[in-house]
Design a protein around this nucleic acid. Sequence first.
RNA 1: GUCCCUAUCAUCUAGUGGCCUAGGAUAUCGCCCUUUCACGGCGAGUACCGGGGUUCGAAUCCCCGUAGGGACGCCA
Length: 471
Amino acid sequence: MKVRTRFAPSPTGLLHIGGARTALFSWLYARKTGGDFILRIEDTDLERSTQASIDAILEAMDWLDLAYDEGPFYQTQRFDRYREVIQQLLDNGQAYRCYCSKEELDALREAQMVRKEKPRYDGRWRDSTATPPAGVQPVIRFKNPLDGVVEFEDLVRGKITIANAELDDLIIARSDGVPTYNLCVVVDDIDMNVTHVIRGDDHINNTPRQINIMRALGAALPKFAHVPMILGNDGQRLSKRHGAVGVMQYRDEGYLPEALLNYLVRLGWSHGDQEVFSRDELIQLFEIENINRAPSSFSPDKLLWLNQHYIKTLPAERIAAELQWHLTQQNLDTSRGPALVDVIEAQRERAKTLVELVAASRYFYEPVNSYDAAAMKKQVSAETPHYLQVVAEHLGALQVWDEAAIHEAITASCEQLQVKLGKVGPALRLATTGGTSSPALDVTLKLLSKDTVLQRINIFIEFVKNSASSA
RNA sequence: GUCCCUAUCAUCUAGUGGCCUAGGAUAUCGCCCUUUCACGGCGAGUACCGGGGUUCGAAUCCCCGUAGGGACGCCA
């Protein structure tokens, strides 16, 4: 049978790290097995679902390049189908109407807590022949088996057993008739022929209930794989109100989707000692059974390392494409100046994020309008204008503007001046970039172009002279 | 509170009874490379939660503690 997996987020917020990883695992498994990956939006919570969240989820899936073969399906568009199933359950005596008020249920729960019992519905309307109270819109509850156990083989945990006595008769339709999560999931997973349910382990407790409903409907059971939660740095579960940030925020902060995906897949999954995986490798190597059982905590440092790794190793064209968004954000116009891919090649080893990469590359595209104060103090002396004048002369005389020639010119300048490069280099860097860090001087100057370099040297010489006379 | 799940360096992990005086990666620290910033290379320290079993032998299997996470909604 063809493998079919699904990712089923609820649109009540951003797609965060945990959700993205679950989506990744589901996607990988489908790809690996040549199956289908389905996206389903679980928007039955009419109160909290928003279009903005739907858009955010879609945008994140797109940015991560986790393409789905089917969907997005929306549960709100399948209400007729759910009602049909609910009616069937009602007709078969597998579900019943419950007329309890919320207050009544709260009181029940409270009393149970006091008695140190697990709070659950006591089934008072399950077989009731009492006359329903007037004016109360009932909810519909599923008749969960009273005894026995539900046992299933979880693909990552192994055998999980829960006694039916622990379960209560869950609500499958609200009093306004809107079906609830557990019912919708079951109907959808059946209708969509989902073979592998891969989801967060916060759903382990729902699984036996869902299995019972599936059995009541006479459906075949899918396989379940519950992946552990991701914890924050403090060991607490990562959630919307607890340190979880949306996937798109990582884009904003300058991470590459390649890095984020690679980081995420290694959080809870491993293939021996391997740390870096291409997409194709992942598809080839991914196995559900290699997913860890323990929750893991998110480590920004390692993500950063992977991001830098990908910045260093991906084709410059790929980086350039991803960089476009940041260039716009940071208002840097690269239409004039060196080719972006050349700057990327020169800079890629000294940026951990794309944000840094852009920030560190401004001087290639914008005039230098200030100089690092500490460096001015440390690297600039009374002789500096003269030194740079000589350098400018050598550079100005060059017929060919390439790295070797530039290197020659600088060396020759030092020889003529009888000084070490240490007297000239830092000042030259300061003059041309405004700061103390850049790629090798010859590379930097080459990219900057001869005209720009000579111009900047002149401006700098004037600046030094002026500040010396005014001091 | 009740039920479910989990437990190897600071963090992510390898390990499926002998190959483990526990390996890799990140982070940290040191050295080298480099007259910038980085990259890179080499090296160091740091872990099997505790206690009982089973076994000739246990990080690996079992039990009990302990700790952490999850669930217990007319949320998903």
